[in-house]
Simulated scan of single mutants.
Amino acid sequence: MKLSDFDFDLPDDRIAVRPTQPRSSARLLLARGDDILDRVVTDLIDILQPGDRLVLNDTRVIPARLSGQRHRNSAQGPVSAAIDVTLLTPQADGAWTALIKPLKKVTEGEDIVFSDDLSATLIGKEDGQGRLKFNLTGDDFDAALAAAGAMPLPPYIAAKRAADAQDHTDYQTVWARHQGAVAAPTASLHFDQPLLEALNAKGIQFTYVTLHVGAGTFLPVKVDNIADHKMHSEWGQITHAAADAINSTTGRVIPVGTTALRLIESAAQNGRLAAWEGPTDIFITPGFKFQIADGLMTNFHLPKSTLMMLVSALMGTQNIKDIYAHALRHEYRFFSYGDSSLLLPQGE
C-alpha cells in the first residue's frame, strides 16, 4: 500500500494543546463496525459490559527534556553554549541515548551541565543521536532529573507552547508506575479515579502491561511504499499473571491505546497471550490478523503515520477514512491531548 492511502487534511486548530478537564469529560467517537456514534468518555460505563477487560499500559513518562550548557576547553580558553537534550533510552552500561541540539557542534568528551546537581558527558554519537554518561545514577539521578527536566511534549504541541508544571500531571496516566517512557500512552490520559471506580463496580476488569513509549512514535514515515518502512523498537513486559488474566477473559479484550495493543499482539502465540519481556518493533498494517485484541480505545492520529495504518488494519481502510471524516466534520480534537475513540470492528 502507498503512504498516500493514509493521508488526510487536518486543520491546525484541531490539534489540542491542553486536555479537557476533567479528563473523563472528553468526547468519545464510538465506532461499532460501520456505525458511528458521538459519545463522551464517561459513557464507557454504559458501553462496556461485565467481563470485558481493559488492557492498560502502566509506563511512567520521565521528564526527559533538558536544557543545559555545554562546556569544553579551547585554544581561546573555556567555551560554553546552550544545548537542548531529549533523553531516549537507557543503556546497559548506564549511559543514555539522546537527541541533542545542536549535535554537530558537540564533541566527544564535552560536559553538559543541566543544574547544580545534574551533568553529563558526551561519550559517543551514532545515527544522529548522542550517548550521554550522567554524573548520577539510581534514585539520585531520578531526583535530579525530576528537578531539572521538563515533560517531553509531542512536537506538534511543543511547536505551539512550552511544557509547564501542569503537564507533569496532564501528560501522565493516573496509574503510571514503571519509569521509562518519553511519550505518554495518550488514550489512557482520559481515565480518572471516579471513572475507574465506576467501571470496576460494573464488573469491567483491568490488566496492566508495560511498554516504554519512545520518541520513535513521532517519527514520520519517509517511504512511499509502506512495506519499506523500518519500525522503531520499544521495550515492553507482560507478566505471567497478566497473560493468564487476559487469556481468561470472558468478554472482550480492549487495549487502551496503540501501545498496549502492539505489545499484546507482539506476544500472541496461536491465539493465546504469552508472557513477554524485551523489545518489539511490530508494524501493524492492513491485512494483519489480530489474535488478542477485540477492539481498541485510541485518540486520533497523525496523517500518514504508522498509527493510522494500525487503526486501518483493525477497522478497514475505508471505514477509518469515514470515521476520521466524521471526526473532522464534528470538530473532534486531535492527537495526544485530544478526544478519543472506541473502535469495535465486529460492531459488538
Rank of each mutant, 00 (worst) to 15 (best):
M315E: 05
K125Y: 02
D12C: 09
V40N: 13
A183N: 01
L145A: 04
D93V: 03
A31N: 08
G278F: 15
D116V: 07
M309K: 07
L211H: 00
L310S: 02
Q318D: 11
A31G: 12
M1V: 13
S24L: 03
S188E: 05
G77M: 08
N319F: 12
K133C: 11
F334W: 15
A245N: 04
P279A: 05
S115D: 11
L28A: 09
T280C: 13
G216Q: 12
A183Q: 02
T207F: 03
V113Y: 11
T59Q: 11
G33N: 00
V253I: 10
R252Q: 12
A165D: 15
L211Q: 02
I100C: 07
I15A: 07
D167L: 03
L343P: 11
A242M: 08
A82Y: 11
S340Y: 00
T97W: 00
T306A: 07
H301C: 02
T259V: 15
G271F: 05
R18L: 11
Q172K: 12
L342Y: 14
P286E: 15
Q166S: 09
D140R: 13
R53F: 00
A75W: 14
A165L: 15
T250A: 08
D12H: 11
S340H: 01
D58L: 10
L132K: 01
I45C: 10
E331W: 08
R131S: 07
L132R: 01
W235N: 12
F134K: 15
P50Q: 09
H168W: 10
I83Y: 01
D294W: 03
T259W: 01
A215R: 13
G138F: 07
D140F: 07
D339Q: 04
D139T: 12
A260P: 03
L199T: 10
Q76S: 10
I246C: 03
N57S: 03
S336A: 11
A81D: 07
K105C: 06
V256I: 05
S74N: 11
D244W: 05
K222M: 10
G271H: 04
A143L: 06
L195K: 02
T89Q: 11
A98N: 02
D139C: 14
Q193K: 14
G347T: 15
L273G: 14
R161S: 08
K222S: 06
S312D: 06
D52S: 04
P63Y: 06
L296H: 03
Q193F: 05
P50K: 10
D192T: 15
V209A: 02
L99T: 00
D164G: 13
L302G: 04
F6T: 00
A184G: 10
H212K: 06
A162V: 14
D170E: 15
F134V: 10
G251H: 08
I47D: 03
T259D: 02
I246A: 06
D34N: 09
T249A: 14
F290S: 01
Q269D: 08
